[in-house]
Design a protein around this nucleic acid. Structure first.
Lengths: 256, 256
DNA sequence: TCAGAAAGTGTCAAGTGTACACTTTTTACT
DNA sequence: AGTAAAAAGTGTACACTTGACACTTTCTGA
């Protein structure tokens, strides 16, 4: 069996990248067309974006690089949430064709460090896909079978997101700079998968100090135009990123 | 440079193992004596327990194995909290002697997956140390300079512990089966590094349902004997392990 | 029997969570 | 010009939780 001459041939990063549009939480996936010798058709395989870690970079840099190559964006919210290293995680038959097409050493175990990323999908200009590879936004309840153990990684990322959003003001990463209160509530309802009371939601958000009202309002809507808000970045600076149980007195619980 | 013939020569696990005794939070460290050719004395180096991941095992199994070899215990609370992979993390001069003594390939980067573990230190029979290697319980505010980036890993584990203990009923992993309310409060005060009100603490713990009062009491103490309590394991079964914001109505926030 | 030590207990005021329905503002249509 | 449709925006009352605060009880050992 050939060994790669990299010092770290078997460590990768995978990115679970969430976006939010049309009141739907979406996942950024890579779609690959793998020629199938038997059928002479292409097999379509979906996978999380990821890559092997280079010798010169650390794990965060590798994840940043994957994100930048895919979306063109830098300084994106990125949170490492788990490593996956089961010896059988990439040995399933369904993944063989792809592996052989990209790896020198398809039998080797790959340990992967998984990142969760939140981006404003409106900012993303997906790189135009080649014939064999393309990035697509997939609604999270339509995620198909993915390569390797990527379904499990995705499920864990989603769970991590649900937990984090109740503890830290990170939902804003999924929205544009300016958003309405309804946008924000819709985002929270989607992620937490339940309805929230409109009046209570607004009160809590405003009182918590995490958002600031702008004087600007929507234009061109055929109903009462909503006020825009923006995330109060000073809030984070004052408190650090590890906010637990913010209440008006300094403690924080978004929804019980 | 020689390459190991393992498929995964460069992935390890490191365990940050917390224990609690004499009202002090302690860390289980490995102390190694490394012969120094210049001084003809031994250099003493402390490090987190850890090992390379074997081809046949997954990451959790590797961490379990490290723990079992060190303490003789199985089924211990173990939570993966972060991976560390900076290219320079093991290249500092101070670590050279040790590395050369244990690794075939001291220049290679090692990516490590870090675990936080909580154990009742009374259950641990530390394996009798050889001349060159020995395990010791170190109070967390006396932790010396450690090998590699282990100080950083420890700091992050401590931060993760502080956060987790406010969200999930995991403090019990550090206590014996039966404990007094004062033991429990002392543990929380130590980890959170602040005083808690005795009456409010008791009320909250009892009302939350996470502990059960036993009829048994202390004997042989020279003051009013304290009642024993135990952790209510059914509580976890009913709610799953990811408890956020438990209150009496089902929500949970331990302390604001 | 007395002193020392830690256990154990109750109340009140302020803050927070939750449930709940109508008015306002805008555009589009006739 | 008038009206309908659509979403924005607003207040209150009740129940519960939190947090501050000090004294009594129970045991041992001298």
């Amino acid at each position: 069996m050939a060994l790669s001459n990299s010092l770290n041939p078997h460590v990768s990063v995978d990115c679970v990248i969430f976006g939010f549009s049309q009141d739907t939480l979406r996942l950024l996936l890579i779609r690959r067309n793998i020629p199938n010798r038997l059928t002479e058709m292409n097999d379509v395989i979906y996978a999380l974006p990821g890559d092997l870690v280079k010798d010169s970079e650390n794990l965060n840099q590798a994840a940043d690089r994957v994100l930048a190559e895919l979306t063109g964006l830098k300084d994106i919210y990125l949170q490492q949430f788990s490593a996956f290293g089961d010896p059988t995680r990439i040995t399933k038959a369904k993944d063989r064709a792809w592996l052989e097409s990209v790896r020198q050493d398809p039998d080797a175990r790959v340990i992967t460090v998984a990142y969760m990323s939140l981006i404003d999908s409106a900012k993303v200009q997906l790189q135009p896909g080649s014939f064999s590879e393309e990035a697509v936004w997939m609604p999270i309840d339509e995620v198909p079978e993915l390569a390797f153990d990527h379904n499990e990684i995705f499920e864990q990322a989603l769970a991590a997101l649900k937990e984090s959003i109740q503890m830290q003001p990170i939902g804003f990463e999924l929205l544009p700079e300016k958003f309405t209160m309804s946008d924000l509530q819709s985002l929270y309802e989607t992620i937490l998968d339940r309805d929230l009371d409109k009046r209570n939601f607004r009160r809590k958000m405003i009182n918590s100090g995490v958002i600031q009202a702008l004087s600007e309002k929507q234009i061109g809507v055929s109903n009462k135009p909503a006020r825009f808000y923006r995330f109060n970045r000073e809030f984070l600076e004052e408190r650090g990123t590890n906010i637990v149980n913010l209440r008006m007195d300094g403690s924080f619980t978004l929804f019980n």
